[in-house]
Simulated scan of single mutants.
Amino acid sequence: METKVISNWSAFVDLCSSLDGWAFRGQQDARWHLQSSLSRYLLAYVSDRAEWPAREARAIRIFRRKAHNYLANPELLNDDLRCLSLMQHHGAPTRLLDFTKSPFVAAFFALERTTTDAAIFALNTPALWRNSARPKSAPMLTRDELDPRVKGNLEKYFLSNENEVIWFGEPSEMDGRLIAQSGTFVVPGVIDRPLHEILDGYESDAELLRKIVLPPVLRSDAMRWLYRMNITNASLFPDLDGLAKSIAVELEMVWPSLTFGS
Rank of each mutant, 00 (worst) to 15 (best):
L97C: 05
T94V: 05
P215H: 07
L209K: 04
K156C: 04
F24V: 10
A244C: 11
G21S: 06
A110G: 11
L251K: 15
M140D: 13
G169W: 01
T116A: 14
T142I: 06
K4T: 11
R55M: 11
K136E: 12
P238F: 00
A234F: 04
K151F: 14
V213G: 11
D48Q: 11
W22H: 11
F260P: 02
I212V: 15
L71E: 11
L77C: 03
P238W: 00
A138L: 06
E197K: 07
R65I: 00
F24C: 08
D48M: 03
E162W: 00
R82D: 03
T3D: 01
S47V: 06
M1K: 07
L141G: 04
S220R: 15
P238R: 00
F158D: 01
A59M: 14
R228A: 15
I247K: 02
W225R: 14
S102N: 05
M253G: 00
S7F: 07
E2K: 10
I191M: 05
D117F: 05
W225T: 09
L218W: 05
N163D: 08
G26M: 06
V213K: 08
A107Q: 09
V186F: 08
Y70G: 01
V249C: 02
K245N: 09
D117M: 07
P256Q: 06
E51P: 01
S7N: 15
T259W: 10
R149E: 04
M253P: 01
N230L: 13
S17G: 01
P103M: 03
R177I: 01
K101N: 12
T232A: 06
Q88P: 05
H196K: 04
E2T: 05
T142C: 05
L15C: 00
S36D: 02
S204E: 02
T232K: 11
R49H: 15
R25W: 04
G201F: 07
P148L: 04
V254Y: 14
P256I: 08
L243V: 15
E252M: 09
D205N: 13
F12H: 01
M253E: 13
A248K: 09
A110F: 11
A11S: 15
A138G: 02
F24A: 10
P53Y: 09
